[in-house]
């Protein structure tokens, strides 16, 4: 059984978090792995977890009515998958599929939400880190949106 605390501490997302908080969070953490092609989360399902990707590749995709799923982003080692657990109604708005064998730490969203309500400082630490990720993703998405390789440019 791998020492999850150590793995959590080494992950970029938790860098700088105090040992006490790490111990607190470990209670909500578990090791997961998905084989190539396996669905990790499905649109419309309850968003109970978020994932720290340790290795592998995950594709974020949307269904289209007639063209099959369209991939809008792939995530890899060090990335965070999923933030719908933060915002009610806590439902996934997209699909996520493992492109290749992917190992991740799953963090129980409900469990964490509870702990954050109890200790707002922990909540702030987590939200600080999440905001950074979301902003980075938003900037990247904007660049994607501009379709700079398209005919307009």
């Amino acid at each position: 059984m791998e020492d999850l605390t150590k793995i959590l501490a080494e992950h970029l997302f938790f860098k700088g978090l105090s040992d006490d908080y790490l111990k607190l969070i470990v209670g909500c953490a578990s090791n997961v792995k998905f084989g190539a092609g396996e669905m990790i989360l499905k649109e419309g399902e309850e968003a109970n977890n978020f994932y720290l990707i340790r290795s592998g590749k995950v594709s974020i995709q949307f269904k289209t009515p007639n063209k099959g799923p369209i991939i809008i982003e792939t995530l890899g080692e060090g990335d965070i998958l999923g933030w719908s657990w933060l915002i009610p109604p806590y439902i996934w708005h997209f699909d996520a599929k493992a492109v290749e064998l992917t190992r991740m730490i799953a963090l129980d969203g409900k469990c964490l939400r509870g702990k954050c309500e109890d200790d707002h400082n922990l909540g702030y630490e987590l939200l600080k880190r999440f905001s950074e990720i979301i902003v980075k993703r938003l900037e990247a998405t904007r660049l994607q949106l501009m379709d700079v390789y398209g005919n307009r440019f």
Binding site: P69, I71, V99
Partner: peptide, 10 residues
């Protein structure tokens, strides 16, 4: 589209 096994993103 789904068949692409490479990276997607800017």
């Amino acid at each position: 589209m789904s068949g692409w096994k490479g990276n997607v993103g800017v």
